[in-house]
Amino acid sequence: MSEADITHPPEPRTHGPLADSQGIVFGALMAAFGVMMLTHMGLVTGQTAGLAVLISYATGLPFAGVFFVVNLPFYWLGLRRMGLAFTLKTFAAVGLLSGLSVVLPRYVTFGEIHPGVGAVLFGMITGAGLLALFRHGASLGGVGIVALYLQERFGWRAGFTQLAFDACVFAAAISVIPPDRVGWSLLGAVVLNLVIAVNHRRDWYVAR
Rank of each mutant, 00 (worst) to 15 (best):
P9S: 04
F122V: 09
L18Y: 04
G27L: 08
V198T: 10
F74M: 09
V176E: 05
R201A: 10
V176F: 05
V44M: 09
S21I: 13
T48C: 04
L96E: 04
L100Q: 06
V198D: 07
V195C: 13
D20G: 00
G144R: 03
E112T: 13
G42C: 10
A119P: 00
R201V: 01
L140D: 02
W76T: 13
L150I: 11
V25F: 09
A167M: 14
P9H: 02
P178K: 06
F33Q: 10
F63H: 08
F110S: 11
Y149T: 09
D20V: 14
T126S: 15
D166S: 10
G137H: 04
P17C: 07
A49D: 06
G16E: 06
R208K: 15
G27T: 08
F160K: 04
P17S: 09
G78P: 05
V70Y: 06
R202I: 07
S98R: 03
L97W: 00
H15E: 03
G99H: 00
G155W: 11
A128W: 11
A138V: 03
H136P: 02
G50W: 05
L88P: 12
A49T: 14
G46Y: 07
V146P: 00
A132N: 06
L130M: 14
Y149F: 14
T45C: 12
